[in-house]
């Protein structure tokens, strides 16, 4: 291989931020490509046609950062599911005579639902992003959703311990949190690369309805439905959540009065969660925010 191609590959390697197998694969493919092109057009023309090494490296880094972020979504959901399993083991091992502490019980349901909502948002976004180009603000949002999913699952397990104290085997309790911590580390790793490549990213609002339509292949023009966000997204969610909480409570023999109280608590939690976390999770806009 000529010195010119060697020098070009060295520049490309220096400009790449991604490490590991993805880096080695890219450099190997570029090397073979430049060998072919040099044989046909000469090394000078081959490297000219390939383009500026900094731009080429950036294009590849962005793609790998997107792919890793999407993979981290899967890890994050698996982590949360593992914690859910450990939480069930904890609840089943609880002392049946112990009285549940109301505050811990409310926190338990609030954290569990937040984790589930974050998981759904992250999965919808990651699935939609398979078919579209990713911007740095989208990746930053996906990382926040990915971080929140196992983090709230861990808080749910903590709250479960407060609701119903008891003793269970560490072999049942520990795997969930361990897997969740590994998932969090994976998300942080993907986030680090995305930040290094994309720089500081602004906050973005991203409608889960739009992501759902894109994910099932109906993306494109759907008027206001695909752009539902903020209060327009919250308003239809309130009666659905209230009805679900009422039905759940009635199924548990709560009676109409107690079930209505449960439904009211559910609505309050939903609104509070929306106010506190809605902006960070890309469901409502703050000042100067864009909409995807």
């Amino acid at each position: 291989m000529t010195q010119l191609v060697d020098d070009y590959l060295a520049e490309l390697e220096a400009a790449l931020r991604v490490r590991g197998p993805a880096r080695r694969r890219f450099l190997a493919e570029c090397r073979e490509h430049l060998l072919d092109a040099s044989a046909l057009h000469g090394p000078q023309e081959a490297v000219r046609r390939f383009g500026d090494p900094t731009e080429v490296a950036h294009g590849y880094d962005v793609e790998v950062a997107t792919r890793r972020s999407m993979r981290a979504t899967a890890g994050s959901v698996v982590g949360a599911a593992a914690v859910a399993g450990s939480t069930l083991a904890l609840v089943n091992a609880a002392d049946p005579q112990a009285d549940a502490v109301l505050v811990w019980a409310i926190l338990f349901f609030a954290f569990a639902q937040t984790s589930a909502v974050c998981a759904v948002l992250a999965v919808l976004q990651a699935t939609a992003m398979r078919h579209t180009a990713a911007h740095s603000a989208d990746l930053a949002l996906l990382h926040r959703r990915n971080l929140a999913t196992p983090a709230f699952a861990l808080l749910t397990m903590l709250a479960a311990g407060g609701v119903v104290p008891g003793h269970a085997s560490p072999w049942l309790l520990l795997p969930g949190p361990v897997i969740a911590v590994v998932a969090l580390a994976q998300v942080m790793h993907a986030r680090h690369l995305a930040r290094a490549v994309g720089g500081a990213a602004g906050r973005v609002v991203r409608s889960p309805i739009g992501d759902l339509l894109t994910a099932v292949g109906w993306g494109g023009e759907h008027g206001g439905v695909s752009n539902l966000e903020g209060v327009r997204l919250l308003l239809p969610a309130v009666p659905v959540a209230a009805a679900a909480a009422f039905a759940w409570s009635m199924r548990d023999h709560g009676g109409p009065g107690a079930s209505a109280v449960d439904a009211g608590i559910e609505v309050l939690l939903l609104i509070a969660g929306f106010v506190v976390l809605g902006r960070g999770l890309g469901l409502r806009r703050g000042a100067f925010q864009g909409m995807r």
Partner: peptide, 29 residues
């Protein structure tokens, strides 16, 4: 633009539209 070829191929892989494997061809990998 030749340098954009491989990121584009990876995007297609990400979308599940293509798959890729290493293979020996003419004594090269």
């Amino acid at each position: 633009p030749e340098g954009s070829l491989y990121p584009a191929l990876q995007r297609l892989e990400r979308a599940g539209l293509v798959a890729s494997t290493w293979a020996a061809e003419g004594g090269r990998r």
